[in-house]
Design a protein around this nucleic acid. Structure first.
Length: 432
RNA sequence: UCCUCGGUAGCUCAAUGGUAGAGCAUCCGGCUGUUAACCGGAGGGUUGUAGGUUCAAGUCCUACCCGAGGAGCCA
């Protein structure tokens, strides 16, 4: 395989002549000297060339080359304090691979959200989007590493499902030959079956919710990583949640420092994200809200503002446990100490980012579970397979779902979730 | 579904009911250390759509379309 050079490794090439392959992302000229900004997907670098350093023909071509043209640039790498990034390349040769058309729409000046979203396929070339999406990939890898290295088996669950978990109003319906099918909202119920077969499992998959939600923390299509563990109680689940989230943050901090720099993220806030995380009950959270002058009545679910007020009370993610029966789904185990509440847990990110993880201990007893399903109007006939997980060797077990995009929004310190996935699907927007 | 705000040049925005403009981008010219470079010049408009009021509508009225922010909703 031929030697290839990447901007991301530029520090390794100090003093050497290299050939970089990439795209022209910016240019400034000062008469007989050109400053070319190049990107190659691993980073950004400034290349400098004076008239006379290369053939006049090539110099003139570079001076007029449209933005986003693709090229190969050859030159010597040198540390230079004047260059953004600390290194620059003094060119000795250049080859244009493809000349772009002249109207590249995204400039260095400001653009509005609708314009950028219409050009999402090009927007992802910009440095901030580059940083966010690289951090996303690293966060996902860190989560997988955490689980894989501890013996979890990745067993992905179906996207096409025959029945609605609860209520069909928020499901996307499609055809499965002669019958209806729905796009999955969660792999959890299937995870419970695979956990009874493999002990510790997880799935990493998209979830689809046809909610008319139009807020900065909702996507119609988003990704979840959902571990499920046999022989685990609520405390075990919380231990795993906090270790997993702490590892994701630590990995991003150590491997994606330049990207966090591009985003101007306050890394001190991220460095505080170490276990143990604060753990409070729902009832304590209600008290906290009321003490904070934010009136809240026991029994309801927290709204966006409630979550913000709560998460601002802590300097790292906080876990809220034991939500009332009414605000949690049928499969949550009852708290033996208080039958009004469930063995559930949500993790709220700090800095006002709200819920990033939801989970808990699952109801173990087949008869009670079936009763709860009937109360919720779940079609029992379609879920006999699920009840089998209790009939044949029920064990205490639990798990959680971690919303990838919500975690990345928080880690990156973004205002809106739409930037954390390459092509967001939102209310009013399915293109590009 | 509801509330609020918005839609004018490729982009970001101006324009008392009275001649549609600026900056950036693009093109042409200048500049040997630029950092969203700078300087000079040029081209670029069915003011979201339809109707209405008026001597006159980007501006006022009505309806619709599209978008943004938020609420509700969201295991």
């Amino acid at each position: 395989m031929r030697q290839r050079y990447y901007i991301g490794d530029i520090g390794d090439y100090d003093g050497r002549e290299v050939t970089l392959e990439g795209w022209l992302s910016g240019r400034r000229s000062s008469g007989k000297i050109l400053f070319l900004q190049m990107r190659d997907g691993t980073g950004f670098i400034q290349c400098v060339v004076g008239r006379g350093d290369v053939d006049d023909e090539i110099f003139d071509e570079l001076a007029a080359l449209p933005m986003e043209s693709s090229l190969r640039l050859t030159g010597r790498v040198a540390a230079d304090a004047r260059a953004p990034g600390g290194f620059e390349v003094s060119l000795v040769g250049a080859e244009v691979v493809s000349t772009a058309v002249e109207d590249y729409p995204i400039t260095r000046k400001e653009h509005g959200v609708p314009f950028l979203m219409d050009h999402r396929h090009l927007w992802i070339r910009s440095s901030r989007q580059f940083a966010v999406l690289r951090i996303r990939a690293t966060a996902i890898r860190a989560a997988k590493n955490y689980l894989d290295s501890r013996g979890y088996v990745q067993l992905d669950t179906p996207i096409l499902t025959p029945t609605a978990c609860e209520g069909t109003t928020t499901l996307f319906e499609t055809n499965y030959f002669e019958e209806s099918a729905y796009l999955s909202q969660s792999g959890q119920l299937y995870n419970e079956a695979t956990a009874m077969a493999f002990g510790k499992v997880y799935c990493l998959s998209p979830a689809f919710r046809a909610e008319k939600s139009k807020t900065r923390r909702h996507l119609i299509e988003f990704w979840q990583i959902e571990p499920e563990i046999a022989f685990a109680d609520l405390d075990d689940i919380m231990d795993i949640q906090e270790e997993l989230v702490a590892e994701m943050v630590a990995t991003v901090l150590s491997e994606r420092a330049p990207e966090l720099g591009i985003l101007e993220r306050d890394v001190e806030a991220l460095k505080r994200v170490e276990a143990p995380f604060p753990r409070i009950t729902y009832s304590e959270a209600v008290e906290l809200l009321n003490k904070a002058g934010h009136s809240f009545e026991w029994g309801g679910d927290f709204g966006a503002e409630d979550e913000t007020v709560l998460s601002n009370q802590f300097d790292r993610p906080a876990m809220v446990t034991r939500y009332p029966r009414a605000v949690k789904p049928f499969y949550m185990e009852n708290d033996p100490a208080d039958d009004r509440v469930t063995l559930s847990v949500d993790m709220l990110a700090p800095e006002g980012y709200g819920e990033i993880v939801g989970g808990g201990q699952r109801m173990m007893d087949a008869a009670k579970l079936e009763e709860r399903m009937r109360e919720d109007g779940v079609p029992i006939d379609d879920y006999q397979w699920y009840l089998d997980t209790r009939r044949y060797g029920a064990v205490p077990h639990g798990g959680f779902g971690l919303g990838i995009e919500r975690v990345v929004t928080w880690i990156c310190g973004l205002h809106h979730i739409r930037e954390t996935i390459p092509f967001p699907r939102m209310l009013n927007r399915m293109r590009p």
